[in-house]
């Protein structure tokens, strides 16, 4: 489809729970992505994700409304435990998911050889950030779409688009992890649980809040202090890449990696659509239904407005950044690096 010079992008939205899935579809998602209740997906948190029965019902619900369901099996199996990932792929194929989101070479190989008709998307967790890397996955496993790491400028994305045989999906909104996806063991270092293998960054069981007499709050991950907040400040969830640290190169504590910011590319939507991006992804499977409804509705309207030749109205999205500053991250300019 071509509208006003733009190809109509798909809006790919988070579904941490069956209720969030229905909400996202109602709010205008073209596709939703979800995971099973175990280590096979990168949001393996208590209270999130789908049982096999819930997944089956969710697929029926989405398909009845012309929305696609993408199953994230996007962690890296530990040696000796491959069966759990194989079962997840088998289940997805049996239930008729529209695509499988994979990161691990072994999982991709299993899916491609066992279910050659099943559409494969390469997860951001695979960290494929160059045309050569992407082409490798396309040639080896027949990958149809790559979810690009959040480390590229829009110009670089357009450049990659011209050099690869598959579709591109990019993040447009949500939590802004600073490390290259799938290439970070910081949380594992502090907690012993691996983001890559266990599917959890900053697991809640290792998060601690300590309040002093003056009601200042210290947040910790495992044994490490991540940040401190005065009683009138909004305390962030302790993730290592958003903490404050001391170093000899600075006189004061600083955000060594990044300030707590929310990625918001609403202002770059026309550029992304011109760059040849097929799908726009909203992060947030851990988010509430209200959040999902608000973000998906706002992006649905923004995309439709641009396709209709208008300008995207962004005010409603600003309210969703929860008091955090927002950023266009790596996408706008090289100076982010």
């Amino acid at each position: 489809m071509n509208n006003g010079g733009y190809t109509r992008p798909q809006l790919v939205c988070p579904a941490g729970t069956p209720a969030a899935l229905r909400t996202a579809v109602e709010a205008g998602a073209d596709a939703v992505y979800c995971g099973l209740q175990n280590a096979t997906n990168a949001r393996n948190f208590p209270g999130l994700n789908f049982t096999p029965a819930e997944l089956e019902a969710a697929i029926a619900y989405a398909h009845a409304r012309a929305a696609k369901v993408l199953l994230a099996v996007n962690t890296f199996p530990r040696a000796g435990q491959f069966a759990l990932w194989r079962e997840a792929v088998d289940l997805g194929a049996r239930l008729g998911i529209d695509a499988l989101i994979v990161a691990d070479l072994g999982v991709a190989d299993y899916a491609a050889r066992t279910y050659p008709a099943l559409r494969l998307h390469l997860s951001v967790q695979a960290g494929a950030s160059s045309p050569e890397a992407i082409r490798f996955y396309c040639e080896e496993f027949g990958v149809k779409r790559v979810v690009l790491p959040r480390i590229l400028t829009v110009a670089e994305i357009a450049d990659i688009h011209r050099q690869i045989p598959c579709e591109i999906e990019t993040f447009v909104f949500g939590n802004h992890g600073l490390m290259a996806e799938g290439r970070c063991s910081l949380s594992a270092y502090a907690t012993g649980l691996s983001t890559n293998m266990d599917g959890a960054c900053s697991p809640a069981a290792d998060v601690h809040y300590e309040e002093d007499a003056a009601r200042n709050l210290t947040t910790k991950l495992g044994p490490f202090v991540i940040d401190r907040f005065a009683c009138n400040e909004n305390a962030g969830y302790p993730t290592i890449c958003k903490g404050r640290y001391l170093t000899d190169a600075r006189n004061e504590a600083y955000y060594a990696f990044e300030e707590p910011v929310t990625l918001n590319l609403a202002g770059l939507l026309p550029d992304l659509m011109r760059a040849g991006v097929t799908a726009l992804k909203v992060e947030g499977r851990q988010r509430s239904r209200a959040y999902v409804r608000a973000v998906v509705s706002a992006f649905r309207k923004a995309v439709d407005d641009i396709l209709a030749g208008g300008e995207a109205s962004l005010a409603s999205l600003l309210a969703l950044t929860e008091g955090q500053r927002e950023t266009e991250g790596a996408y706008r300019s090289k100076t982010w690096r």
């Binding site: 490390m179 290259a180 910081l186 600075r250 982010w336």
Partner: peptide
Amino acid sequence: RMPLALSARCYHARAHGRTKD
């Protein structure tokens, strides 16, 4: 020392108020 993470951003430059470029 154990390699723990990679990023597109240069944290050495950031610590000194610079960018990768």
